[in-house]
Nucleic acid binder design. Sequence first.
DNA 1: TATTTCGCATGATCGTCATCATGTCAACTG
DNA 2: CAGTTGACATGATGACGATCATGCGAAATA
Lengths: 199, 199
Amino acid sequence: MATRAELKAESRNRILQAAGTRLRVEGLAGAGISDVMKDAGLTHGAFYAHFANKSELSAAALRHALLENRERWVGERKDETWKQRLRRLAHRYLTQIHRDRPAEGCALAALATEAGRGDELIRRAFDEELLKSLHGICNGAQEEQVPTDLRLDDAIALMALCVGGISLSRAVADKELSARILRACGDAAGRIASVTKQD
Amino acid sequence: MATRAELKAESRNRILQAAGTRLRVEGLAGAGISDVMKDAGLTHGAFYAHFANKSELSAAALRHALLENRERWVGERKDETWKQRLRRLAHRYLTQIHRDRPAEGCALAALATEAGRGDELIRRAFDEELLKSLHGICNGAQEEQVPTDLRLDDAIALMALCVGGISLSRAVADKELSARILRACGDAAGRIASVTKQD
DNA sequence: TATTTCGCATGATCGTCATCATGTCAACTG
DNA sequence: CAGTTGACATGATGACGATCATGCGAAATA
């Protein structure tokens, strides 16, 4: 069976995969429809059988990419303190490999500045997916070390630190400075954690 | 007096000003040459009397914008501890006004992700201007609270937190979440400061 | 099996944009 | 003052990209 509907779903998936990759590498403005379709093994004409316009594709591809991202990064629940968790996640994120392979990297970091100039559809996608990722970060540490509200605030700050750090490390021409940015942000990550006792 | 050379210099300045604004609002990809020239009170043809190509304009405009940024943000030397300074700078940066007025805002935050996809010229401009800004942050606090090296690392992390925070707050559709991002990052900024005594 | 549906391909169309060719006029130079 | 320069304007040119029009062929349906 697997006919029609399934074939179309498979095509759509290939398109989303290709678009997600190109989005992360070339940005919202850079990723052209015909290139994406070529990557997916189709021609540009087939595009409109799947999406109404480019904006819909971008939003869908962003969601697709971030789903993948979360599975890779915040999946496991470990036995660690909140501070340890923040530090561990940041160090896993702020690597030279991640910096040099945007194609498989975090889509939030790839589109952070461009998304703000996008339309409502993309902003909503960014919004909702970011929230899911933040909750993924909050869960998975030992309970009750830090109140839920503070934990979310910490997760937000961690996300900003990581997104900013990777972006800066990519934007910079000097490799040494780039490495130092990654290191400095990774080191600072643990210090972001709210401390419940004092304060 | 004021002839030829000076008129040209004034034109160039208007172009840089216009380009710096459009760059921050529309991004590297969005800012077209003819629009910039129109803003500067000229037509597109005059462009090549001032710059060899668009790439050179972008790099020059980025430098121009960041010079302006530094004068506004890290100019004053205050009598404050390192931790106080980090907190103060972050709170001045992470405001809703800054978020909503990218035209006059920080060019690093406006171009962070796009610069990484740009050519060598832009990356170098980003690189050098970022370093100047970091040094501006490091200077101006009381001496010897924190060793120079650690201070630079702290400044890097602060910058990443601020750039990431503003970018996320702009990318998000929900105004409440956006405000919370600004608040959370501002709160975390002070905690980034290296503490020399322990550790 | 006859007909319809629809995923996909091919090939316009239209707009935008960077860059260049050419002309003009005022400022410079001798 | 005559000739030259150069800042600027106007108007190509050519590339590219989003979207649409049309046609094909195989699966779905009757």
